[in-house]
């Protein structure tokens, strides 16, 4: 083909790494690489979703009663917060495409604020579970009435198997916890990105791709929550 570049010539573009011929090839590589990484993440969460599906399917009533302790309102607010943060993130990428530096920083900061809001709400949710001894392990609640109130009973009889309820909370803490870890990682990555924008690092200002990659990661975190929300918070009563 046409482009025969001498290796010693690293191009005029300092954002271009030596192994690439041109910036287009580099950008494509980064985006494809990010997607390949995200497919790994899909399988990572996917295995957990599978375990959840299996146990949920087996212990429908117990999971339903256990889920009654979760607060749908808080979950819905958290979903909105994450959706909004996805929006601000995509606006940051758009601003990066248009090379509006201050807009990028502003949108990214908004995204971080959303992420922190999400974590704060999550903190309150977790503490209400822990207060009611609904954390998995040796100290798990033994009194179904104290933990789930009247929901735990059907026709005057205990309807919930506390073992299965514990399994539910094991998965709840496991999956939302892993998701929260991803959020925290996302916050750190976005902070690093903001710093690069603030110091006008050429690696981000010359091209929008690095911002786009962080964006892809952030949307993926949102994507996971989009499924976690209906699965954990919106269970139908077995009927």
């Amino acid at each position: 083909m046409s482009a025969i570049t001498n290796t010693s010539d690293h191009g005029h573009d300092s954002a271009l790494h030596h192994q690439f011929e041109d910036i287009g090839q580099q950008n494509d590589s980064y985006i494809v690489g990010m997607w390949v990484f995200l497919s790994t993440e899909v399988m990572f969460f996917g295995a957990l979703f599978f375990i959840y599906t299996l146990y949920r399917w087996n212990y429908q009533l117990d999971f339903y009663i256990a889920h009654e302790h979760l607060d749908v309102k808080l979950g819905a607010i958290n979903t909105s917060v994450l959706l909004f943060s996805s929006f601000t993130m995509v606006m940051a990428v758009q601003s990066a495409q248009l090379k509006r530096r201050l807009h990028v920083i502003g949108y990214l900061l908004t995204t971080i604020v959303c992420a922190c809001t999400f974590l704060v709400i999550k903190y309150f949710e977790y503490s209400s579970k822990i207060a009611d001894h609904l954390y998995p392990g040796a100290g798990f609640a033994t009194d179904a009435h104290a933990a789930f109130g009247a929901h735990a009973f059907e026709a005057g009889k205990l309807a919930v198997n506390m073992n299965h309820a514990q399994l539910f909370y094991a998965l709840y803490f496991g999956m939302t916890g892993l998701h929260a870890v991803h959020i925290i990682a996302g916050i750190l990555v976005i902070l690093a990105l903001i710093r690069l924008w603030v110091i006008r690092a050429k690696s981000v200002t010359l091209d929008y791709i690095p911002t786009e990659m962080v964006g892809l990661y952030w949307h993926f975190v949102d994507l996971v929550w989009i499924f976690l929300f209906p699965l954990f918070y919106l269970m139908p009563k077995p009927h």
């Binding site: 995200l38 497919s39 899909v42 996917g46 299996l54």
Partner: peptide, 16 residues
């Protein structure tokens, strides 16, 4: 590659 992750996930659900 977007599809690949989800397709493999469907295979995983074959455990069901």
């Amino acid at each position: 590659w977007v599809a690949s992750g989800f397709v493999t996930l469907i295979l995983l659900f074959g455990i069901l």
